[in-house]
């Protein structure tokens, strides 16, 4: 791991405008990522993890206008406001990505072997024949049974986890410098998950690849991430080294999240620990701290003013809760 950041995100704010709604799912997010480093993004479902990572790459569903402001520097190239051509030349080559929803990312009418080979051919500039061989290698690498037969199958003939592995194979086909992985292992069983994470780490070490890993699985975070960024309602609640944030969380939402992890001594059949209350459905930017209505530590004033992300008693950790980090 070198000190040089490959990705510098500063004050990233994204408004999504559809025909009848305006949503701000990303509200002033800042982080940096060095080569070879892994940053995990965790947080409430609907808190903006996916949009944070994909909108700046020009990857948003049709029918939505994404209004992106702030700055995303990838190897010195500004992505915010970059033209489609620039983004297209990065996507899939220098920046690989794994979508949360593999089915919509795969072409239902084409055999998966073609789909993988196509990416390899396009980005590695190799012959179609070499690309086919590469596709076979990749299918083996992600641990799929019957690799030769699998190449000939269509996406709908695969289980959820097999499809996810096809996506992973495509994402690493061009050996990117940055991999953005949105819940890459949620559809996988734990043995395959361990194998995929090991594979990603190997590639990472070999290529000095940086990785943004969106996940809900704290075990995956613990094993794979150097740092964690916790999001709530489009904002950064906390960010810091994994071994600190998971062990001594400093934001009430992170605390609740970690408390909710099932433990070995939880009785079989017992109720699950979680946070009460509902996460906000995003609309107009929220005044004050968005977590206030669900927070055990909230005081008067929390709802009035948005808490800044500040360094805590531990200088490596930043949290947006002045109540617990005065």
């Amino acid at each position: 791991m070198t000190a040089e950041p490959i990705l510098i995100v500063k004050d990233l704010t994204i408004d999504l405008l559809t025909a009848h709604t305006a949503v701000r799912p990303v509200d002033s997010i800042s982080y940096q990522l060095r080569r070879g480093e892994t940053l995990a993004i965790v947080g409430e479902s609907g808190s903006g993890k996916t949009v944070t990572c994909f909108a700046p790459l020009g990857l948003m569903p049709v029918g939505v206008k994404a209004d992106v402001s702030g700055s995303v520097l990838f190897e010195g190239t500004e992505l915010v406001g970059a033209n489609e051509e620039t983004l297209r030349s990065l996507r899939g080559k220098s920046i690989g990505f794994i979508f949360q929803d593999p089915m919509s990312a795969l072409n239902p009418a084409r055999r998966i072997g073609h789909q993988i080979a196509e990416v390899a051919e396009l980005h590695l500039g190799i012959t179609p024949r070499a690309a086919e061989a590469r596709a076979l290698d990749l299918i083996k690498m992600v641990g799929m049974s019957d690799p030769n037969a699998r190449l000939k199958q269509y996406p709908h003939e695969l289980s959820g986890g097999l499809r996810q592995r096809v996506m992973i194979a495509i994402s690493i086909a061009a050996e990117p410098k940055l991999l953005v992985a949105d819940e890459p292992t949620t559809a996988l069983d734990v043995t395959v998950q361990a194998q995929i994470l090991r594979l990603l780490k190997e590639i990472q070490a070999r290529m000095d690849m940086a990785m943004v890993l969106i996940t809900h699985d704290m075990g995956v975070v613990a094993g794979a991430a150097d740092r964690v960024l916790v999001m709530y309602a489009g904002r950064q609640a906390e960010v810091g080294p994994t071994e600190k944030v998971l062990v001594a969380p400093r934001h009430p939402y992170t605390m609740g999240l970690i408390d909710a992890i099932p433990r070995r001594d939880d009785a079989i059949g017992s109720r699950f620990r979680g946070l009460s209350g509902l996460p906000p459905i995003l609309g107009a930017p929220i005044k004050g701290c968005a977590f206030t209505p669900r927070c055990r530590h909230s005081v008067e004033g929390c709802g009035a003013q948005r808490p800044p992300l500040r360094t805590t008693a531990d200088p490596a950790v930043m949290a947006a809760c002045p109540v617990l980090n005065a």
């Binding site: 949620t186 809900h216 999240l257």
Partner: peptide, 14 residues
């Protein structure tokens, strides 16, 4: 519940 974060996951499980 695999697509849900832990705190909402707990609510849905309950």
């Amino acid at each position: 519940v695999s697509a849900l974060d832990l705190s909402i996951r707990a609510q849905v499980m309950n």
